[in-house]
Design a binder for these strands. Sequence first.
RNA 1: CGGAGCGUAGCUCAGCCUGGCUAGAGCACUUGGUUUGGGACCAAGACGUCGCAGGUUCAAAUCCUGUCGCUCCGACCA
Length: 607
Amino acid sequence: MLGGKSHLDLRHSPLPACRSSILHLSSLIPPMRWTQTLIPTLKETPAEAEIASHKLLLRAGLVRKLSGGLYTFLPLGVRALRKIERIVREEMNRAGALEVLMPALQPPEIWQKSGRYETASDVLLKARDRAKKEWVLGPTHEEVITTLVAGEINSYRQMPKNFYQIQTKFRDEIRPRFGLMRAKEFIMKDAYSFDATDELAQVSYQKMYDAYARIFQRCGLKAIPVEADTGIIGGKFSHEFMVPAETGENEVVYCEGCNYAANIEKAMSQGPAVKTHKLAPPADEPHHPAKFPTPGVVTIEALTKAPHNVPAERQIKTLVYLVDSKLVLLLLRGDDQLNEAKLISALGTGNLRPATAEEIFAAMGANPGSLGAVHVTKIPIYADSLLCDATGMTTGANEDGFHFRNVSINRDIPVNHWVDLRSVRLGEACGNCGKPLKVQRAIEVGHVFKLGTKYSEKLEAFFLDESGKQRPAVMGCYGIGVTRTLQAVIEQSHDKDGVVWPLSVAPYTVCITPLSVTPGGPVMTLAEKIYGELEARGVDVILDDRDERPGVKFKDSELVGFPIRVGIGEKSLAKGEVELKLRGGALTPVKAEEIVAKVTEIIGRAE
RNA sequence: CGGAGCGUAGCUCAGCCUGGCUAGAGCACUUGGUUUGGGACCAAGACGUCGCAGGUUCAAAUCCUGUCGCUCCGACCA
């Protein structure tokens, strides 16, 4: 079911649209006249915004920045957000998950208990109360929900259970950026499943996976599920839902030949076209490494040039890392790049960093650029699997200005661990089907994890199974960045004039644009009538009753991106017509008496 | 955390290098008028502790120091 393949690929098999609720948000948030709400559109782009979706969030009057990574949602932004949240709720409820609401403020004790007070300390925002007691502003809620379940669920008969919430999270981002994409405070839907066995947990996982596919599809997003690294949350395996976008902060490796798709942090391949172990050793290969002078050569690239002319795939790159305060050597082929996520997963700890130049010199007796692992025994050596059996390699001699050639890794380097450390590169053969892999930048909007029993054991969420034996619950956790999803929709759906909202998440579905707002005049009278009738049918409609010139109204409606615009002017009204304009489409004259039916038909068709 | 850049009206920016008179423009805002199918025009007006603190100077938006904030790049490629 989950093995090596993405179960569902939205590129090829769109889900059938399900019965939804583009109508009737009005019971919560009433229809609106433009002059009565606040839609502060901007002609010019604020200097702080870099990418299209961030610019449009500001220009269309959806959000305003309070401080770095902290945003106020304005009325239009709230409406779009509520629509996404409602889709999420409907699909979570449909999948059998139960809505709860947990505290954002959490006691540090539960984080100490799970061990993440240390391992996740970089992202934990903390606060102190009057008694100087410390509190944690929750970046996620595994600790809280597991504590709850530990107290409330004691029998396999009470499972499966899946709890979710839509709530504000806090993360101490090193560098908030791109508006809502990476913020200090953001809204997340998080869900946590509890099962009696591994097999049942798999079922819960699959339910969420399927729910996520539906959620993003209903939001009008093309989101691709990919295999992912589990990061600091831990766990056995996971999938991320990725929205392809050049401005995304992640890279996805995918294959067009089969359904393989993975985050680059996790992706595997059959390796590069030039196989190390197939490189024939040079004819004059002696039976030992040979030292040769390389003054001033401190990069892989420099060694590829004259007079040395050693191809990068013939070099061994030696990196020094400090892992849990101890040095390790990492060996990669010269043309490969270290993938830190893979390193973390190979070592089983995230507590690592590159060693400093001083630490390196103290340990190796040479500076970066002249490092190598030949005959090194005092430091553990992790080598990338691609170097297995490599012969005739060149590497640093641990003496500034010298390298070794004729290095055979099996003979000359005492490798302790062979692991996968390299990043897959564009064009390498797919591990499943052999076709060339592609790489695409993407925005992560959702992540599903199968956690196992890591948290249930540490936080003592035990239950009694059928045989009366005490066992830890098997957990899964599932997140959707709700505010990020909102911005991803804009990033994926906009043009030069503004946002192009999908019907399902547009702040208002219909914008009525009378070109004259004279009270009691024929134009405004008809506009009011259509407004009232659409409102009565539960359509999310806004009436642009501003006394503005037509150009201003048209530009604003396109900037904000309402899917349907009904234009009413004296010219067309003389013929008994109004103008129907779909965002991004052509203008269509429609008989005034038919417009309400026509609009509801368009909306109904989309449901 | 390292590097770079920027902080002047609600927004976009000029002025700073080379110190000097009352600190400017466009957009937005207020009032009046003319306009009215794709971000109008005319006139009048309101809006600024030039991020903050200190220093140099007869004189600081301008030079120096510090500090705070924002943006971008980096924080694997030895």
